[in-house]
Amino acid sequence: MPAKSKAQQKAAGAALAAKRGEIPKSELKGASKSMARSMTEKELDEMASTKRKGKPEHVTKY
Rank of each mutant, 00 (worst) to 15 (best):
K19E: 09
E27Y: 08
E22M: 03
E57K: 05
K19A: 04
L44Y: 09
S38N: 15
K6L: 12
Q9I: 01
K42M: 01
S5V: 03
P2K: 05
K10C: 01
Q9R: 15
A14S: 10
K6G: 01
S49L: 14
T60L: 11
M39S: 04
K33G: 05
A14Q: 12
L28R: 01
S34V: 12
K33T: 03
T50P: 02
A11V: 08
S38V: 13
K10R: 09
I23H: 03
A7I: 01
T60C: 06
E22N: 06
D45L: 05
E43N: 05
T60G: 13
A3S: 10
A14L: 14
P24M: 08
P56I: 08
Q9W: 13
Q8M: 04
S38C: 09
M1F: 08
L16F: 15
E46R: 12
E22K: 05
A11I: 02
A12H: 04
K61P: 00
M47P: 09
G21P: 08
G54M: 04
K29W: 08
T40K: 04
Y62V: 11
T50N: 00
T60P: 00
S38Q: 12
K51E: 15
L28G: 03
A7G: 13
S38M: 13
K4H: 07
S26P: 00
G13M: 11
G13Q: 14
E27D: 15
A3I: 03
M1N: 11
E43F: 10
K55N: 07
K42I: 08
A48F: 15
G21T: 06
M35T: 06
S49F: 14
M47I: 07
S32D: 09
R37P: 07
A7D: 14
M35S: 02
E41C: 12
S26Q: 04
Q9F: 09
K42Y: 04
M47F: 11
G13F: 12
D45N: 11
A31M: 13
M35C: 14
E57D: 15
P24D: 11
K53M: 08
K51C: 06
M39I: 06
K6I: 13
R20L: 09
V59T: 14
K4A: 02
I23D: 06
R52M: 15
L44S: 01
K6R: 03
L28V: 03
R20C: 03
